[in-house]
Amino acid sequence: MSDSKPVTRRNFLFISTAAFSAAGAATIGIPLVSQMNPDASVKALASTEVDVSTIVPGQSITVLWRGKPVFIRRRTEEEINEAQKVKLEDLPDPEGDDTRVQNPEWLVMVGICTHLGCIPLGNKGDYNGWFCPCHGSHYDTSGRIRKGPAPTNLEIPDYVFLDNNTIKIG
């Protein structure tokens, strides 16, 4: 360091000016970027309550949650057995059926194909579950990917049973 130039008053001024400007620019950037995030009115609608009392076994409904479709299916004994029997080794995205449901009778999941965002069709496909018509992904009765380009199982949203007949999603 002995041969380097001494630190002058001017160096200090340059560096502090630059630092001050950078901090100022970053501060201005915060509101400009943040304004595009979900706003208070969107956040206020971030959870949805669903009455499921009218759904009979083997029937499913689709509800809108955060602008996305959510499948709520009341599964038959047969479908539950089928989902529970599958060996984890056979799955591209191994996940037991018990980790995907709170109550085996009720399957709640986001109805968006994990490949490129289309909505899979119910009661279709090689595994008796869902089939995505866009690029041919097959999901089983637990909503797990079995065949096709989708990388992961259908997403399970956060939800709770408020009582026997009401599910709160989100």
Partner: peptide, 13 residues
């Protein structure tokens, strides 16, 4: 009013 109340930093902008 939505800008003023809901949008992040909307009041400021």
């Amino acid at each position: 009013e939505h800008i003023m109340r809901d949008v992040n930093y909307g009041w400021l902008l």
